[in-house]
Amino acid sequence: MAEKVGTRLGPSTLLQPALPRGSGPAAMKREFRDRAELENYLRASFAYLASDPDGLSPIRGGRDSALKALAAVEPGRYERTRNHLDGAVSRLSMYIRHGVLTLPEAMRAALTKVRRPREAYKFVQELAWRDYWQRLYEHLGAGVWEDREESKTGIRAEELNADLPEEVLEGRSGLACMDAFVGELRATGYLHNHARMWFAAWVVHWLRVRWQAGARFYLEHLLDGDPASNNLSWQWVASTFSHKPYYFNRENLERYTSGRFCRNCARRNDCPFEGSYETLAERLFGPETVR
């Protein structure tokens, strides 16, 4: 049976003494001159990583980096601006994913930064999403890979493509926004939540690819990739874990990106996201769909 344990964690420097040296063929190195040496070592240690076309993320792992990110959190600005790609998002997810930071710890830190607890409401609610997904994971286990409910799009899973097209995986679709999202994801292992949603909606509803293929792509690259949060969010977009599909239009994407992608997009006059929500719903799902 599981037992409870306190998790007030100190700075990592408190834990520095008595680092094990490692011994035997299975022990891995702990000392590196720089990140380039670490990258080379990992490529040499794991055969399947030798030909990984992408390098390390510029986002560093470790509790020191996590505490810096936590210190920078601004709950009030987060609430007002988080949906914009330039908004004051926290970038704590990858540390929380691996337990480097805990949810209670992040909540306590946020509450020390506001005059009234209500100012941290949205930030705390977003932490609650992580708690929610993990509770569901307890129940579902590997079931997070299966449709939770029937799709509300009227399109059957058998009608969808099993795989993501190569040009999408390589950021060569010709859509400036989507190609930029793939580029950022592959270079950094991070993507703003709104970009994740737009990309997921494009993959599932426009390209008609099964959500599992997109979920797998995210899990390969996202530093915060977690099967529960990730797959159930894809299912929320696909409408197998929500009462209607999530989709967007160009106006929405332009608003929350300040139009940066559309300005020079090769397909700016032939944008698949152009149109009202009603027009797009009819085009994507047909006239009888749940909106």
Binding site: S12, L15, Q16, P17, A18, L19, P20, G22, A26, A27, M28, K29, R30, F32, R35, L38, E39, L42, R43, S45, F46, Y48, L49, D52, D54, G55, L56, S57, I59, R60, G61, G62, R63, D64, M94, H98, V100, T188, G189, R216, L219, E220, H221, L222, L223, G225
Partner: peptide
């Protein structure tokens, strides 16, 4: 790691987290 498809970014991030902790890192 291979089955999950963890890229170098993900493995590297985890590795850096571990380097700050007194833990023996092994493979196998």
């Amino acid at each position: 790691l291979r089955r999950e498809g963890y890229t170098l970014k993900r493995v590297g991030f985890l590795y850096e987290c571990l380097l700050e902790l007194p833990v023996e890192i092994r493979k196998g």
